[in-house]
Simulated scan of single mutants.
Amino acid sequence: MELFPPREADENGFTLIEMMVVLSVFTVIMAAGLTKMERIPSVLEREFFISELKADLYYAQSYAVSRKETVYIKFYSASDQYRAYRIRDNKVLFDKKLPDSVDLLDSNLQSFMISGDGDISKFGTLNFSVYQKVVHMKIFIGKGRFVVQ
């Protein structure tokens, strides 16, 4: 009695070469998909930065409207930070340093004012680099609308 009887020629199964070909094709498809994915932490940090900047601008606008005061917002590209001041007495409402992965690029808008009725004094675009991906924030004149792209 043999432990491993010889295989018959008509048995159904896959050869080693067939298995290797299928595994190679599967590996190539998986590798192609992984090269296009961004790192998850970079995406999360970019989204967190954008939401925090929006929240700060909405806060400055609501502060100006609720107190009927003008608020001045200034972006400093040299130190990668932004501040909001109350015009009346230069009281700082907030002073935020950009995260290490975020850089303020050359923009056509370095500062603007939000009046007591919520209007913004200047329009333009703020450009940021977040993990080497450029994010544009367009500020529209008038009722304080802005869009992030």
Rank of each mutant, 00 (worst) to 15 (best):
residue 141 I to E: 13
residue 86 R to N: 06
residue 64 A to W: 00
residue 26 F to A: 15
residue 109 L to E: 12
residue 134 V to G: 06
residue 121 S to C: 09
residue 93 L to I: 10
residue 146 F to K: 08
residue 102 V to E: 05
residue 24 S to W: 00
residue 8 E to V: 06
residue 79 S to D: 15
residue 48 F to A: 14
residue 60 A to K: 03
residue 67 R to E: 11
residue 133 K to C: 01
residue 77 S to C: 03
residue 3 L to S: 07
residue 132 Q to S: 15
residue 138 K to F: 10
residue 9 A to P: 01
residue 128 F to H: 04
residue 6 P to W: 00
residue 20 M to C: 03
residue 61 Q to V: 10
residue 64 A to I: 01
residue 74 K to W: 08
residue 62 S to K: 09
residue 140 F to D: 13
residue 30 M to R: 00
residue 68 K to P: 00
residue 48 F to C: 08
residue 14 F to G: 01
residue 106 D to Q: 13
residue 91 K to C: 04
residue 57 L to G: 03
residue 126 L to C: 06
residue 95 D to Y: 10
residue 130 V to H: 04
residue 133 K to N: 14
residue 76 Y to L: 10
residue 131 Y to E: 11
residue 112 F to V: 05
residue 2 E to K: 00
residue 121 S to F: 05
residue 58 Y to A: 03
residue 129 S to A: 14
residue 44 L to D: 06
residue 8 E to L: 05
residue 68 K to W: 00
residue 124 G to K: 04
residue 16 L to P: 01
residue 43 V to Q: 09
residue 45 E to L: 12
residue 101 S to I: 07
residue 104 L to W: 08
residue 72 Y to P: 01
residue 59 Y to F: 15
residue 143 K to M: 06
residue 56 D to G: 05
residue 15 T to P: 02
residue 12 N to V: 08
residue 53 L to D: 03
residue 40 I to N: 02
residue 85 Y to R: 05
residue 17 I to R: 03
residue 26 F to R: 01
residue 34 L to A: 14
residue 48 F to R: 15
residue 94 F to A: 09
residue 5 P to K: 13
residue 139 I to G: 03
residue 122 K to F: 13
residue 108 N to R: 09
residue 15 T to A: 03
residue 138 K to S: 12
residue 23 L to G: 13
residue 89 D to Y: 09
residue 44 L to K: 13
residue 92 V to N: 02
residue 103 D to H: 12
residue 57 L to K: 03
residue 17 I to S: 12
residue 134 V to I: 15
residue 11 E to P: 00
residue 106 D to Y: 10
residue 123 F to C: 09
residue 63 Y to A: 01
residue 149 Q to C: 07
residue 141 I to F: 13
residue 38 E to L: 10
residue 114 I to D: 00
residue 149 Q to R: 14
residue 129 S to N: 14
residue 21 V to Q: 04
residue 79 S to E: 14
residue 19 M to K: 07
residue 77 S to Q: 11
residue 66 S to Y: 05
residue 69 E to W: 02
residue 22 V to N: 11
residue 63 Y to E: 14
residue 124 G to E: 11
residue 82 Y to M: 06
residue 134 V to S: 03
residue 69 E to N: 11
residue 53 L to M: 15
residue 35 T to I: 11
residue 28 V to W: 09
residue 67 R to V: 02
residue 77 S to N: 13
residue 111 S to M: 06
residue 33 G to S: 08
residue 32 A to I: 14
residue 8 E to W: 01
residue 19 M to Q: 07
residue 20 M to K: 11
residue 34 L to Y: 09
residue 69 E to D: 11
residue 147 V to E: 14
residue 94 F to T: 08
residue 71 V to R: 00
residue 77 S to F: 07
residue 120 I to F: 15
residue 32 A to N: 12
residue 109 L to W: 07
residue 67 R to G: 02
residue 125 T to L: 02
residue 130 V to A: 12
residue 2 E to A: 01
residue 87 I to P: 01
residue 88 R to G: 05
residue 141 I to V: 15
residue 47 E to A: 14
residue 87 I to H: 04
residue 131 Y to H: 15
residue 25 V to W: 00
residue 74 K to N: 10
residue 123 F to T: 12
residue 66 S to K: 11
residue 70 T to K: 11
residue 21 V to A: 12
residue 88 R to C: 00
residue 43 V to A: 08
residue 124 G to Y: 04
residue 89 D to E: 11
residue 134 V to D: 05
residue 113 M to P: 00
